[in-house]
Design a protein around this nucleic acid. Sequence first.
DNA 1: ACTAGGTGCTCTAGCGACTATAGGTTCAAG
DNA 2: CTTGAACCTATAGTCGCTAGAGCACCTAGT
Lengths: 158, 158
Amino acid sequence: MLTIGKLGRSTGVKVPTIRYYEQIGLLPPPERSTGNQRLYPAAAQLRLSFIRHARDLGFPLESIRELLGLADQPADSCAAADEIARRQLAAVEARIARLTSLRGELQRMLAQCACGTIAECRVIEVLGNHALCAHEHEAAEAGPGAVTPDHPPEAVRA
Amino acid sequence: MLTIGKLGRSTGVKVPTIRYYEQIGLLPPPERSTGNQRLYPAAAQLRLSFIRHARDLGFPLESIRELLGLADQPADSCAAADEIARRQLAAVEARIARLTSLRGELQRMLAQCACGTIAECRVIEVLGNHALCAHEHEAAEAGPGAVTPDHPPEAVRA
DNA sequence: ACTAGGTGCTCTAGCGACTATAGGTTCAAG
DNA sequence: CTTGAACCTATAGTCGCTAGAGCACCTAGT
């Protein structure tokens, strides 16, 4: 039996995070000691390591919840698990594509700046005038959500 | 003079977002009509476009606050602005590097899965056992914060 | 003058995935 | 028996918005 601190250390997950996972139902509530402290069986390490690894790979907690459900049905087809992983791969690829385009824009801005005064600063200028950009870039990298706000293709330069 | 809706449409920023920017002090409170509605001068379009473009490039609002402060001092050196942009570029590059490694891991997982039952599913297996990974990958892509939790390099396999 | 509906206002709560703080209890070592 | 680390609960904060409730206002048409 492990205390929450040992479980955290052995899996690389912080203690408050473990309690948070329990709170949202990702980990089952463990037994308690006489003094009301959580006591985990060794198997909890496997489950928590699974969660941590999936988080490291960027899976959202909702996907992890699904994957854990699937992992508990060893006889079922793994098509559903593959589908979740494919979704995650697609999300990662979309994020890479977007960030690569942003990197280009930032590099161009910086390369063109002669580093004089603000008045002639290319960085400030480009930010103020989208027309100076090489191509379109919409909606910032925000997170896995990848929300694309609707904004019409009007010219911004007032 | 523009109403908030017109300002939003002309800059591609949603109305609640404009009000939010005002609330956190990124936009100055505009004049009001007799009926208490916000009335913006044409110049507000420039400032808001600047903010939107910087957000599209992934700058956090705090950096944008600094950049706006700098943009108001046209005679100053633009070294500080460049520094902020370089920081942003570094953050973007770090995110790309991390996501590229994750993509590799996900691709490998999927390629190795013969798509039978969960019991033999490579996706589930790899998630459960970090030792099957090609290389280290720590701390998920979370956002601009890029928080790197401290977790010691202990073996995870229990 | 009246009315409809589109736009505006404020305020509050919610998202994801935690992290931090406060203020208390329990446990293990010396 | 005392210290101090580790544990407990509960609440609030992070980031950058977004959504909703429940109003006020403003413009166009009749």
